[in-house]
Design a protein around this nucleic acid. Structure first.
Lengths: 225, 225
DNA sequence: CTGTTGATATGATTTTGGTCATATTTCAAG
DNA sequence: CTTGAAATATGACCAAAATCATATCAACAG
């Protein structure tokens, strides 16, 4: 099993602020897991016993609405930590996590994280900064949900995905999402998401290669009204 | 000027975790302010030089959308801290803060808060917990915005305001909001908010006494579809 | 008391997007 | 290669909510 002290993934998250000793201790109690695409990492309402450090892959965090539809709230990618919020609040998770592609994660037990948070101010400040960023992102999402049209939100989602999760060699978005996932990100009906994507394609804003989507006209997408 | 060590307001926020020494130091550099209803506490994009501890009153945090409409993202009330997020992230504020009634606040300089965060793990863990709670609330708001109707959102807003901000002796909601504010909370047009409130009144779910709203049928509001 | 202003209210119309129905395509299992 | 299931696509229709147009009301300065 890999050693946290030597793992480069930690550069991308708050674990980088841990001391060598703390990392060695984590190394000793962490466990590595492989998670297949579509697999549930944790359920809404489940009590988490630790956090996941994502070594590879992407997952979606979603919440079931009262009307029975799933709403994707956030996507978490390689390098980021998953589950801090629940660990810190001590509450059960308010979101479900599902792998969007094959993932590799390290599971770090709750006690270890909590004691590091209480011992290492630099680490806890780093986590604070992560959460502050998340909070800002959430504010933006709320405003977009409330004030923008489905077309605008979908255009922005495509841009966001390209900018944050990267593209394949052929220029297509590296994350493969179903139309239902897109609908669930922008908070609309699956049919509406399909319709809007078809329209974007007709207008030359995007193209598709197999199941993958490629942004053809970034500025056009940004100007969607 | 009041002394933080003796102030009871701090019981309601993370400042309760500071030591007596730390509180005395804050007392020495804080400043008290009175803010009139409608006054702007800070603007979107403004760099904050500290946090506000709210001794009395309520304010709204809103963000200007690209379509020119203001979206209320959060309301902050007596006992809570205002501006932590910006101080922690080191970025300018992404929200505007406006007093909803006359307020009394204490302004605590940034440096003092930051150094306490880095020195006192209990304090920083408390702030972490606050932010974790906020993050969960934001998730819920996102899901509601995406999946519920204007009528449902407005009904929930009324219930939320009653439960969290209390009521006057006559049973009316203690926070006085304009129809425009209600629209801005649920993310709809002012006319729509007015229409829905009128409908609620016609159906006996709420009543009005002067400018104040009174919830007459809580269960009815909860069942709104 | 009157005129002005901003908030509230309501009607008429249009737009957006949800729902339901039905094809079509894709892909994997047999 | 067929068959069946799931994902994608598209049309028709309907409901929710935005927009535009007025009207009414409350508060207040002059």
């Amino acid at each position: 099993m890999g050693k946290c002290e030597q793992c480069i993934i930690k550069q991308f998250n708050a674990l980088k602020s841990l001391t060598k000793d703390e990392l060695i201790r984590i190394s000793g109690c962490k466990s590595s897991k492989k998670i297949k695409k579509g697999e549930v990492i944790f359920e809404e309402g489940e009590v988490l016993n630790g956090v996941y450090c994502i070594r590879d892959g992407i997952c979606k965090l979603s919440k079931l609405s009262e009307n029975g539809k799933d709403q994707i709230v956030k996507m978490v990618i390689k390098g980021q930590l998953l589950g801090q919020r629940s660990i810190i609040s001590g509450q059960s998770s308010n979101l479900q996590a599902v792998a969007l592609n094959d993932m590799e994660v390290c599971f770090i037990p709750k006690n270890e994280i909590i004691s590091d948070l209480q011992r290492n101010p630099k680490f806890s400040f780093d986590v604070l900064q992560d959460m502050a960023r998340d909070l800002k992102d959430s504010d933006d999402i709320i405003v977009n949900m409330a004030q923008k049209t489905v077309k605008q939100r979908l255009a922005e989602a495509l841009i966001y995905i390209q900018e944050n999760f990267g593209e394949n060699p052929d220029g297509t978005l590296s994350v493969l999402l179903s139309r239902e996932d897109y609908a669930s990100i922008v908070g609309t009906a699956t049919e509406s998401a399909i319709r809007v994507l078809s329209q974007f394609k007709r207008e030359g804003l995007i193209s598709t290669i197999g199941k993958f989507i490629k942004i053809e006209n970034l500025n056009g997408l940004k100007r969607v009204e």
